[in-house]
Design a binder for these strands. Structure first.
Lengths: 195, 195
DNA sequence: CCAATATACGGAGAGTGTCTCCGTTTGGCA
DNA sequence: TGCCAAACGGAGACACTCTCCGTATATTGG
């Protein structure tokens, strides 16, 4: 790739990240081009669609997802706390921009989406959490990472839509956690085994 | 109102319902006007915004909500079955059109939304279910209808986004139900009292 | 039945956003 | 330095929302 093309590409990503943060995923792409000081054609040559641009923006995001999962897994606490910690991370990660949760839950099931690899990262991270909890026999039977992702994605979508703050989201996540974990009295046995 | 105005208004609602069902809530309003055989001005005079038009479309929907709640409440079965029956009705009711769940969960918290009364209908219906289950001591403490609406709305939003079918939605609703209901062994006592 | 008039209609067009096409410019190599 | 493939830019076609105002018509009182 020619040096000027490389520069423009990077600048566009940088500016787009800024604009999307300010105005949400629906922001005008021409605005992005203008603010980056390039023509609309240049933007669309590098990023044929809004989705492809989003994909590029999210490169660094993949690292954050994995870091968050790592961090959550080092937590020493009850399975419920661990699960809730991951849920809160999850919501935060997909709610970086307005409209983010909808975008991501939509792409989740769509193999042809340009950001499908990003979603896989997220699912893989969720899977690590599921495996850990499964090893502790803390989860009910037949709990899959995809379902967990859908449930928490749903909460994030509602929170994003209705402008809920973290305090309002927490109880919703607790309900989901309680629905996924084996009831507490049954679990106390498993806890005892583990410690 | 003049007779022709009345006619146009009704025709617009009818056509809009059809177009929205076909193309989702983002369908072009000019398309609605054209298909109804009126000018764009006529449409916008009757319905200054897309939201107002949606509100008009949904008049009959209010009845359906209440009917569904009535029907669910006549169910003879476990609290879990009753709750799940309502959840499925709820999802169906807000998923009548593509984009519906997002629209409704968004309006849910927004007192200035033109369809706020419709949302209240939905919340009121959910409240009836909550009261019934509360009377049976089947719900955990501090469960509010709003939270329930958000959780199920979230699932509906995901399902709508990712094109999930009913079979895929069911387990998600079960998780939420299990998270809201008191664990089964604790509940058996309450059941005994009721029967 | 016929004005007179309030009421409603229609569609051109302004504003905004997406995306393409193609003439012009430029980076990189021989 | 000179060539040319690669990249640029922005005008403009197309789509959608919403407004404005000249035109048409339903209604009503005489």
């Amino acid at each position: 790739m020619r040096a000027d093309a490389q520069r423009n590409r990077e600048r566009l990503i940088e500016v787009a990240r800024e604009v999307f943060r300010e105005q949400g995923y629906d922001a005008s792409l021409d605005e992005v081009a203008k603010r980056a000081g390039v023509g609309a054609g240049t933007l669309y040559r590098h990023f044929p669609s809004r989705e492809v641009l989003l994909d590029a923006i999210m490169q660094s995001w993949v690292d954050r997802v994995n870091e968050s999962a790592d961090k959550v897994l080092t937590h020493e606490g009850s399975p419920r706390d661990l699960l809730l910690a991951w849920f809160e991370s999850y919501v935060a990660l997909i709610s970086l921009h307005k409209g983010g949760p909808a975008k991501i839950t939509k792409a989740m099931g769509d193999a042809s989406s340009p950001i499908v690899t990003k979603c896989q990262t997220l699912t893989a991270a969720t899977d690590r959490i599921v495996e850990r909890l499964d090893a502790e026999h803390a989860l009910r039977e037949h709990v899959e990472a995809v379902q967990m992702a859908r449930l928490v994605g749903g909460v994030a979508a509602v929170a994003d839509n209705a402008d809920l703050d973290q305090a309002a989201v927490r109880p919703l996540l607790e309900v989901i956690a309680d629905g996924l974990l084996v009831p507490s009295d049954a679990r106390s046995g498993a806890d005892a085994v583990r410690s």
